[in-house]
Each structure stands twice: as C-alpha cells, then as structure tokens.
Design a protein around this nucleic acid. Sequence first.
DNA 1: GCGACTCCGTTCAAATTTGAACCTTGATCG
DNA 2: CGATCAAGGTTCAAATTTGAACGGAGTCGC
Lengths: 160, 160
Amino acid sequence: MGRPRWLNAEEKRAWNAFLGTYELLNRRLDQQLKQDSGISHLQYVILARLSRAPDRELRMAELACAVSNSKSGLTYQIGQLERAGLVRRRACESDPRAVYAVLTDEGMALLEQAAPGHVALVRELLIDVLTPDQLHALADGLGEANRRMLATGDPATDCR
Amino acid sequence: MGRPRWLNAEEKRAWNAFLGTYELLNRRLDQQLKQDSGISHLQYVILARLSRAPDRELRMAELACAVSNSKSGLTYQIGQLERAGLVRRRACESDPRAVYAVLTDEGMALLEQAAPGHVALVRELLIDVLTPDQLHALADGLGEANRRMLATGDPATDCR
DNA sequence: GCGACTCCGTTCAAATTTGAACCTTGATCG
DNA sequence: CGATCAAGGTTCAAATTTGAACGGAGTCGC
C-alpha cells in the first residue's frame, strides 16, 4: 500500500455534505415528530417498518437489522413503544427463543397520523431539493454502498 | 394543501439508502477509529475541523455548529478530549464570555496517525463505490440540501 | 446609567445508546 | 445421549446525548 489517497476537493465536498445533511435532517425530523406525534425518528422508522411487514409483525433480530440498530437498542425502544401501547410483544410458537414485535392498532393509527407531516418534511428538506438526476444517482450510489456494507458486515456483530 | 404526496418507488429507494448508508457507515467508522486510535468518529471530526482552523483553534459555538452538534454535547466532548490531552481550552482576551478550543500537538499527532486508515475506509465504503457522476450529484444535491437547512435553521435552536 | 435582550458556554437530570455478559434454547457432531 | 457451539433476546453498568435552565457579559435604545 502506498501513500494514503486523500480526498480531493469534490470528494471532500460530497463527504461533508453527506455527513452534514444527515445530522441536520435527522435532528429536524426528530423535532417535528416529537412535537407532532410524541415519538422519535427512530421510533417512527420502527413503526413504519412493522407496518409494511406481513401481519404487521417482525422478529426482534430482523427488525433490529432492518432499522440498522443494535439488539439491545431495539429491546429498549420496543420497551418504550410497548409502554405507549403502540407495539406489543408476542412469543413465537415454533421457536421459544424468538419474540415478535407486533404493531398494534393504536400504533398503526399513530403512524397514519404522523406520516403526512413527516413525509412532507422529508420532501421539503431533501427529496424535492434534488433534481431527478441527483435523486437517481443518490438511490443508485448509496444503494450500492449500502449493499456492500451489508455484505461485508461481520455477521457476529449484531448485524450492525 | 391537498392529499399528502407520498414518496414514489425511486424516492423511497433514495431515502432508505440515505438513512441506511449513514447508519452503517457511521458505525463502521466509529469502530475502526476506536480500535485504531481510541477516539470516536465525532471526536475525529472535531479534531479534523480544528486542524483546518487558523492557529488550530475555534470558538466553542462555531465548532459546535461546524460539526452539527449541540452546545452541551460539544462541552462534553471537548471535556473528554481535554482530559486526553488532545485539545486545550483557552479564554478569549477580547470577550470574557468566549472560549477557544485549541488542538494540541498531541491532538495533531493523533489525528495524523488516525487519518490514513480513516480516509481509506471512507473511500472503501463510500467514495470509491460511487461513479464520478454519482459523486458529483451527491456533492451538489446534498450540498444544496445542507445549505437550505442551515439557512432555514431556527437560529435560537443551538444552530442545530 | 438603566432595562430589556441576546449571546456564550456550562451544568444538571433524564433519556438513550453502547457493548459485554448472560440465560435459554436449537443445531450439529461423535 | 452428551458436548459444544451458534442464535435470540434481555440485562446491566457505563458512556453519551438531549434539552431546559443558569450565570455572566456584551449590546442597544432611551
């Protein structure tokens, strides 16, 4: 391996924009969701993921992986959501070790109430700011980066 | 305002890829930096930002803004970095309220030691995965989103 | 000079995240 | 069977983040 290949100006620009956009965006989404619906962005993502699953339920490990969260982190969040009545835990009949997180009707209702404002903000702050070409490039490029990291991921490391 | 404009398939793809990539990437960078250099990704970003500043120093508020962090969060991190000898606080002579965070020689040395591996991983996981067109689109698109959020930001809200 | 504001950075308690350790089963192999 | 190892979730303590105060100074208009 030779000398480190530093980032050139455009690469730096892209990298900094990527980091900055995420931080800013995540914070705005968090604030809006908390204010309007009393849940965090992470909780929204969890509820949304469950709502798309068959029977609106998913196993803990699978859900953790789907929202790029750790096992223990998910245990905590599901605990919060359960206390709020938005999610319910269900034991798996075939495998005693497994636990399903199930979206309740209340959870679905909250999600439907929160979604319009959330999506509108995502549009305003990111999606609608991009040109169609940029949107496409972002979907392709980041999609590929995503795929590679998932493929490379140390499987022992929580899927994270 | 009419019915909510939901995200179409490509928009969803872009949005999910964006969120997922950040989560995965940030975690990998964190692990690598902790393992190789004993600092978190956030701490790396702070040190790196300081290293680029005139006299390697920046005021707390400015630094907080530059790394998209909260004031109290930065106070904490600078405390940690100071304990480790990587950063030092300096009072401002002209304004008694102001505090400068200064990168020490040790901090600079650590940064220089950490940088090659860090940059290599950023390349491997993101930059080098993108085509030149995608890189350009990302820099432009996310740069613009970034700019707008900074412009829109409630100035009272910590600059976050 | 006074009052009303704002800015700067810190402090504090509460909420969340992290990572390792742990407890239960499954699965696999002799 | 019995041993070993991996998988699935939870628990726990420690580290970090959050957001709302707070205290001390500047600033501005009057």
